[in-house]
Computed example of a mutant assay.
Amino acid sequence: MKKQIAFDIETAKDIPGDGFDWKPHRPLGISCIATLQCDQAEPEVWHSLEHQAGEKNQPRPASRMSQVDVASFVRHLIGLTQQGYSILTWNGLSFDFDVLAEESGMFEECKQLAREHVDMMFHIVCEKGFPVGLDAAAKGLDVSGKLSGVAGVEVPKLWASGEYDKVLEYVKQDARITLEVAQKAEQNKKFQWKTRKGTISSMPLLRGWLTVEDALELAEPDTSWMTAPKGRKSFLAWMDES
């Protein structure tokens, strides 16, 4: 079994609108993170704690993770890579690692982790020219899907209103899906997803999932049929901007 760890972050700031145009609203803050290693039965969660004024009982989750705690998480990822673990994400290249870099202040470390890790969605973009959603991947591979009853856009509001357990279950499930999709697709030597039309499409995966650096070496796919294709370089833009 490959030594792999999947992770997913949830951001703290509520982004208006339906398109999740998050960059104009940064810094977003991180409410919580979940990780799942291939040799663990259950995901681990990461968040900061705070005491309310006048409270004498146990601290509750903070509205946002502190810079110290986010930096500690980044160092945790670095330590795991030094132990031989491969990091897995779904869109981690252009989102999770960008936010982690800003929130931790560890820009160079996050850039290196981002280049060397496996972002499955980015691999698909490099191969096919378009992204696929994590839930579509889960449905295509017949693995457990997103937590029912919770939409991703609702998560910041849920966290702010104190529904911590619901959000933590949501982020843990995303970590589970990410690892399970990675393992099942590699086992089958092909990736499958459910299209918007309801059909199942597939992509050969004979070499397994590629790191960001290796995916960038793939030949550019034909995107002439697309109205507004998103070039692979746009996923790495933050590295030049930071």
Rank of each mutant, 00 (worst) to 15 (best):
K3V: 05
K3T: 04
K3C: 12
I9Q: 05
E10L: 06
K13A: 12
I15G: 05
P16V: 06
P16M: 10
G17M: 07
G17C: 10
G17N: 01
D18G: 13
D18Q: 14
D21A: 13
D21Y: 06
P27V: 13
G29W: 10
G29N: 03
S31M: 06
L36Q: 06
Q37Y: 04
Q37P: 00
A41W: 03
A41D: 15
V45W: 00
H47Q: 04
H51A: 14
Q52H: 14
N57F: 07
Q58M: 15
R60H: 10
R60F: 05
A62D: 15
A62K: 07
R64N: 08
S66K: 09
D69C: 03
V74P: 07
R75S: 11
H76N: 08
H76F: 09
L77P: 03
G79H: 03
G84W: 07
Y85E: 10
S86E: 15
I87K: 02
L88A: 04
L93A: 11
F95G: 12
F95M: 13
F95Q: 09
D96L: 02
F97E: 04
V99A: 05
V99I: 15
L100N: 11
E102G: 05
E103H: 14
S104Y: 08
S104Q: 06
G105A: 13
G105T: 15
M106Q: 15
M106F: 10
F107Q: 11
E108L: 11
C110H: 06
E116Q: 14
H117F: 02
V118I: 14
D119Q: 12
H123K: 04
H123F: 12
I124R: 10
I124D: 11
C126D: 04
C126T: 07
C126S: 13
K128Q: 08
L134Y: 13
D135V: 11
A136H: 04
L141A: 08
V143A: 12
S144A: 13
K146C: 11
K146N: 01
V150S: 08
G152R: 07
V155W: 01
P156G: 04
P156Y: 02
P156R: 00
K157F: 09
S161G: 11
S161F: 01
D165P: 13
L168C: 08
E169N: 15
V171P: 06
Q173W: 11
Q173V: 10
D174M: 08
D174L: 09
I177V: 09
I177S: 00
T178P: 08
T178L: 10
E180V: 09
K184H: 05
E186Q: 13
E186I: 03
N188Q: 12
Q192A: 15
W193E: 09
R196K: 15
G198C: 14
S202V: 09
S202A: 15
L206P: 00
W209Q: 01
L210E: 14
L210M: 11
V212G: 05
D214G: 05
A215Y: 02
A215M: 07
M226R: 09
M226C: 02
K230C: 01
G231C: 04
R232K: 14
K233S: 15
F235E: 07
W238I: 08
